[in-house]
Amino acid sequence: MHSALWWRDFEYQDGVVTVKKTGVRVPLEPGVIGEFFNWLPFYFLVESWRWKPAAQSGPKIWFAPDRPRPWYLIWPVLHAAGAQIAKTASEADAVFYFDDSTTCERVATPNNARVINRDCQSIAKSHVTAVFERVFGYSLSVDPRSWTGPMVAKSEKNGAHDGRIVQGPCEPEPGLVYQRVIDNTVPGGMVEDLRCPTIGGRIPLVLPKRRYQANRFANSNDDVRVVETDSVLSREEQAKLAEFAAAMKLDWGGLDVLRDRTDGRLYVVDVNKTDMGPPIAMSLDDKIRVTRRLADTFLEYLGETSSVRN
């Protein structure tokens, strides 16, 4: 089993599970318990990959300051790629800066090391919004004091999932950002987010995630599909998202992208440098397909960075 004793990352008290690293609190409700048992078959499958001979043949990756737990997407991708988690930086083929915090400081790495995400030091919502507006050339943020009508208010912090729609104008609350409401509704009374896994600026595939409008800002999904990138994003849009990822200094991660029905434009509303997944709502077959596809792209990316640095 996983040697890092990942269950120690949590505290339980009065029906609430708290993630020690981020402070995120999750009420232990039937839906959460159901999602955990839905995730277990995939977890055990990936554990079986770790013991195959091919698991010892891939690159060695050193993670700092934290080691990824099984619910992070990079964990199954590593094992699907036959990669190993190195014990020290000196023996690693690449160094992955892995920190679930919203903001962090740059970590020291060996000279000439291939480093992933070291310079992605902030995924605060205000920073994401500022970079998005600079790259795409149109606004997502609003001034709550002067904005008239509905707007989204949400925490700066990573993983809070506390967004809500409020009416403006109003006085801003500390620690919150305010954004325009994007009309990402789709048939069936649902909203759709485009989760774009990004590796070295590439988006190998897209995961359209749908939820009923009443659960617009929830962390769970009612339906998740797997589609080819070209079927939902034009080549020009893919190039813009790659430019955005480069401006964020994001080598590996997930972009949450909304398409507004009213103007057809894309809006990047969140960046995840330690993204979780594959999404629970996906079938086991789709989880395997996504993981293997991302593993292939990750190995290609490592090969390209190796040829650049060596």
Rank of each mutant, 00 (worst) to 15 (best):
C104R: 15
M282E: 04
S141N: 13
R265I: 00
V177Y: 04
Y97K: 10
L40H: 00
V128R: 03
V177C: 11
D14R: 15
T148L: 07
L294F: 08
P172N: 01
W39H: 11
V232Y: 03
V232H: 05
V17W: 09
W71K: 07
R261T: 08
A81P: 02
D296H: 10
G34C: 06
V186I: 15
Q179F: 01
K21C: 06
T103M: 13
I33W: 13
G159Q: 06
V142Y: 02
V177M: 08
I203E: 01
Y301K: 01
V290P: 00
E11I: 12
E171Y: 04
L299Y: 02
K60L: 07
N215R: 14
V268R: 06
Y267E: 04
G137D: 05
G31W: 09
T88C: 00
D256V: 11
I199R: 04
Q84R: 15
E300R: 14
W6D: 09
G163A: 06
W39L: 03
S307H: 13
R211K: 15
W147K: 10
N184M: 03
D9T: 12
V131D: 03
G23N: 05
R67H: 11
L258C: 07
I116G: 01
A245E: 05
K287N: 06
T229D: 03
C170I: 12
V24I: 11
V224I: 13
A108E: 14
C104S: 13
H161C: 09
T148R: 10
T109N: 01
V290G: 01
G277N: 07
K273Q: 11
R25W: 01
W6A: 12
S141F: 06
L302F: 07
V115C: 03
M190E: 10
E91M: 04
L78G: 09
F37L: 15
S231I: 00
R195Q: 07
D9S: 14
D193W: 01
T102R: 05
K209S: 14
S146Q: 13
E105V: 03
K20A: 10
S155P: 03
